[in-house]
Amino acid sequence: MSDLSLSQIHKSFGRTEVLHGIDLDIRSGEFVSLLGASGCGKTTLLRIIAGLETVTRGTVRIGGRDVTGLPPEHRDIAMMFQSYALLPHLSAFENVRFPLRMRRRGSRAEQAERVERALETVRLADLGHRRPSQLSGGQQQRVALARAIVSNPQILLLDEPLSNLDARLREEMQVELIEIHRRLGLTTIFVTHDQDEALSLSDRVVLMNAGRVEQQGSPREIYAAPATSFASSFLGSANLLPVTVGPGPVARLADGQQLAIPAGQATPGERLLVLRQEDVEMLPAEKAGDLKARVAIRVYLGARHRYMLDLAGQRISVMAANSLLLEPGEEVALKVGRILLLAR
């Protein structure tokens, strides 16, 4: 049974259409990421689910009920905002209690108990009396999360909730989000522009581009088998090279180099060769590789090096262990692991 079902959602602001017919079904308990660059319509879609925006056309169903025309307060949802949107005149405790108070859930004592539990869940039990201005960014974020889960909503909406945190806190919160999701089993929709976040948190990634769903699937599927060049470049740092396939199981690069390809992908024609950083191994020039390239720039990253290489008139980026040290201008051999070809 699906908790949320969107069909043919269109949305225009003035004369510009920003969503061009989105269809999406989300199962009960699923953790779904809406992933895309800014301006792709992911936040607008989230706000439509929340009821903060009206649709131009289409239907929104929550738990099988048509809620398209309903204002946010009549939908069983909770939303966490990028800016947290904590009410500055209320304590953390009162902020978390607010949805229970407004939705008239339980007696005062019951509400207090649920608030305490929610604050414990986010490990803030002893800071309930503080005002938002007296809390650190990370703590504010936890209060916002507690406020979103306290009413046990049918759907939990998260709008880039981690983007205002520094890298270390963000990783910590990711783990915490996974734990909370496992424990409470809330149907969750998570909007983000960060591919790592989307891949590591979700059961399913919905990749959006220019108001359309570009591709959706499990994180593994969508990473391993991007359907389009947009998907492949957005997920993981992939190098894209135009090639000509055929005749035979061979791809020819712009500079004439040839690369053997699996017979299953050898349909002749113009293609894009996807070379993910981790699928390319750098070898000294004298060793036998699949392709030859030239070092342009070397960047020291501590644990390893990143090399920018000139290959077939293009710059590609490849990682290499510190044991291999090449200078700009040197030739290098490349061994290609997995080969993926996309329509051009």
Binding site: G51, L52, E53, T54, P71, P72
Partner: peptide
């Protein structure tokens, strides 16, 4: 801006 302000 807050949408969903009642029509009346």
């Amino acid at each position: 801006m807050v949408r969903a302000v009642p029509a009346w």
